[in-house]
Amino acid sequence: MIKIDNVVKNYANGETEVKALRGVSLNIDRGEFTSIAGPSGSGKTTLLNLIGCIDKLDQGEITIKSETVSSMNKNEKTKFRRKNLGFVFQTYNLIPVLSAYENVAFVLSLLDLSEDEVRERTMTILKEVGLAGMENRKPSKLSGGQQQRVAIARALVKNPEIVLADEPTANLDSGTGEEILKLMREMNEKHGTTFIFSTHDPMVMDYAGRVVMLHDGQIKSDERK
């Protein structure tokens, strides 16, 4: 479903040029639970940003659901993300003035849905991620793990094809991180959503159905379990 074809991404860093991705090619099928692994600076975030249609590549092509996203303009990309992509961030990035419920419902407010449907879908997904009864809590009244659960609910509530998660467990202790991974895996199995997440934590890789190792902007290995 996702075709990454010989993608090159360079950053101009003052005078010097940083080659973040040097010709990455990769196919990801619908419903896969893929980990992009590799040491810091290996290009994981860059690759996820390109798949997530929030950055521009320099060479190559990315196709998602047979749409060439890499050649879309800004507005087309925004629309594509709104419809197809969910994001989970290392720092959760919840809106602090909104309750857990509102943080999730926010995503649906960008789509044309009836109020009843927004309510129904938001309550259901919050229950699925294990936050029943905490809908009205502000992020400051939730633990890190609970906040990341809200973020996962936010990513999933619109039933996207793909959820991209850049280091989703890096800010959590290992126990909580493991729970978050289990939850993501569960959602992946239940909804058939394609998950792509990056990590440099070997424990995290154990949960992945497929581990793509990056090194210096190139794929070093690609293993399915």
Partner: peptide, 9 residues
């Protein structure tokens, strides 16, 4: 950045 990622125009 989060809001823009999620497709807010």
């Amino acid at each position: 950045g989060m809001m823009r990622s999620l497709g807010m125009s």
